[in-house]
Design a protein around this nucleic acid. Structure first.
Lengths: 388, 388
DNA sequence: AGCACGGGAATTCCCTTGAC
DNA sequence: GTCAAGGGAATTCCCGTGCT
């Protein structure tokens, strides 16, 4: 036909993956399954424009490549995996006349290699070179020294089509595709906010609020965190609302301390108590989290948790000390951060990961290679066969 | 003479040591120096009852042994170290007529071996066997399989005397001694309390207090922590004082949350504000730490941080809600924990580490061995010579 | 009961801090 | 400056939890 054999990725692999070690995926276990972007889906690819007259069968081989498309030492094990690669052969007469088919990587896990001691990495690179899966025809002369502990992640998946004609001759094709980058799961930015203390306060006065994080913060640079107190937004009102910025005084591995400012001059509510959100944001990673927070106006005064009675208005006059310099300022509505429901983590935008654009796959002459000598190489350690 | 050559340890090595890896002590660096029990002192041994008529020289060799006195794969580098052992030779004619001398291990570091991959440990054990320093004549037939990642620490230092006669024949002696056990520095129990929040409160009412720890807690079992509020002790008074126990509600890796009880029924002070200590103890590890804490009695009432004026006594009558069930109880004076000055860490007692008593060194026949073939073996990797 | 997931312990190494 | 100490990042592994 006019259009030639092609392959595309229907479902990209998950952006963050917990790579497992060989030791963790041995003995019938898998672990570290590779999923697709959507929840619990899996990676899917489509092969199109098959010509059953020319092609007795079509084989898709998938393996790892670096962001710039060099062969990569991490490998795949699980269903339809051999020699560290995913390999699926489809006889064209099983297509029922269709010229395309889809593949799902149902039970495939992506396995990393040891970096320590350093010769383990070298061995793994050599093994990967021996597998001879180089879909983008990269120059391999410098491959054996290009990988270090620092540049093994992120990586991509690459898929290439091999065709077998009716003389049973198998040849690689230039139909190849690569996935988006797969990062280490520990790089996924998250703000593991457990709770804050105290979770309520009064309008006047300043005091510290402590934020405890179960997960260690990715940095302890106070200026890269922001804390805002925001009145819970009721759908009906577009009018003025309370918003104040809290000064971040300290950041430790699992703790942030911020100072609640005096809110007297900002207070416009007629309510005695106002439900708010405290929104804490990591500006460096563009992530935020929030918790509900109560601000009480002592009109009528409630004396902490132990006063059940109220004072009369006459008393209030001299109870207040409004000489504080409020650090909070009233923000424009457009600056307002939408309060989160409690315990919700929101991703402001994707982190700006390095996204060097790799060169387009070339259709240059493929080195003489029988696709199936892939399997002739020694089995990778731990790369036990899948369901076949 | 009647009494025979003997060796004793004058200064034991530090109980907790940060063993360094070979990679950390290479290239002229030392690091991980072994110290004595006292601050910045060093290990010292004394050789006694030397007989200059029989002994042309006396050599002390020191090396590592397990708690039960088998040769141990960790090794020593630094001044006077060769082949992973400390070796010091003393000519008896340099003693000036004395029959004893002392040795200090001034610049010696104790180096650990890699456990991963497992063959590294095996190599290290084999190297240690080749060194042939076995001062307590242990049966070595099972040595090559006795060590695992789990039983390499703690360990001991052992010192043995070798003598050289006037025919220049060197022989080991049964004069040997072993040190107390040396544990890994990470096992040293400590409570890295950074601060608590809030650090003041009022007599009535209950609320949470958060304790943040820079160092991860060794466990998160609430029942194994205790928190007490103790009135600062003035030397002059043996009379009643305030003490209350706080209920520990939650323990996380870096956080403990405890609830301050209502103190109304315990309050006997005439003071408006009482300086206290909050003492937090890890009962499992017998360590505690404390911070100062202020308890204010709202008589006259101070309304948090914003009320500069006081209420008159008439008002107080209905401000109080004393229906709380105080969880605190008045303790006997003998139960009282001495308040610590702020930021002081106190060790209640030494942790109960395993202290299996090894057998006494035996004077059995020592295998034929020239002490100085120790040095004939290949240099340990990283065991660069010291100052000689 | 099996098995993948996720937490976190254990191990190794690197790099800043601090003392001289 | 030198270099050991200490903090903590990076790596590897183990195991409890939860789902089927």
């Amino acid at each position: 036909s006019m259009t030639s054999l092609s392959i595309e990725i229907l479902e990209q692999p998950t952006r963050y993956h917990r790579f497992r070690y060989e030791k963790e995926v041995s003995g019938g276990k898998l672990g570290g399954l590779l999923y697709g972007r959507s929840e619990k889906s899996c990676v899917r690819v489509r092969v199109s424009n098959i010509d059953p007259l020319m092609q007795k069968s079509v084989t898709v081989i998938g393996g790892t490549v670096s962001p710039d498309l060099y062969p990569h030492p991490f490998f795949m094990v699980g269903d339809d995996c051999r020699s560290g690669t995913f390999q699926l052969k489809k006889d064209t007469d099983s297509l029922g006349g269709k010229t395309e088919f889809e593949i799902s990587l149902e039970k495939v896990s992506l396995v990393c290699v040891l970096l320590r001691p350093p010769d383990k990495l070298q061995e793994a690179v050599n093994r990967r070179l021996a597998i001879n899966f180089n879909p983008f025809n990269k120059d391999l002369t410098s491959m054996s020294s290009m990988y270090t502990a620092r540049n093994l992640k992120p990586l991509r998946l690459a898929f290439q089509i091999f065709v077998t004609d009716y003389n049973d001759v198998t040849a690689p094709t230039s139909a190849a595709v690569y996935s988006e980058e797969i990062y280490d799961y520990k790089q996924e930015p998250r703000l593991g906010l457990y709770d804050l203390h105290p979770s309520s306060s009064e309008v006047p006065g300043t005091h510290d609020i402590w934020f405890y994080f179960d997960a260690p913060l990715s940095h302890t640079d106070c200026s890269q965190f922001s804390v805002h107190l925001v009145e819970d937004h009721n759908e009906h009102d577009n009018e003025a609302f309370l918003e104040a910025e809290l000064r971040v005084k300290m950041a430790k591995k699992h703790l942030i301390v911020a100072e609640k400012p005096d809110l007297t001059e900002l207070w416009q509510s007629a309510n005695e108590r106002l439900k708010c959100q405290v929104v804490i944001a990591d500006k460096k990673n563009n992530i935020k989290d929030s918790r509900s927070f109560i601000v009480e106006n002592p009109r009528p005064v409630k004396l902490g948790v132990y006063a059940d009675e109220v004072l009369d208005d006459d008393l209030l006059g001299f109870l207040y000390d409004t000489n504080h310099q409020p650090e909070a300022k009233r923000l424009r509505e457009s600056d307002r951060v939408d309060p989160q429901t409690s315990h919700v983590v929101a991703q402001l935008q994707q982190p700006s990961q390095p996204q060097s654009q790799p060169p387009v796959a070339q259709a240059s002459a493929y080195p003489a290679l029988d696709a199936f000598n892939l399997a002739a190489h020694h089995q990778l350690p731990g790369a036990s066969g899948g369901s076949n």
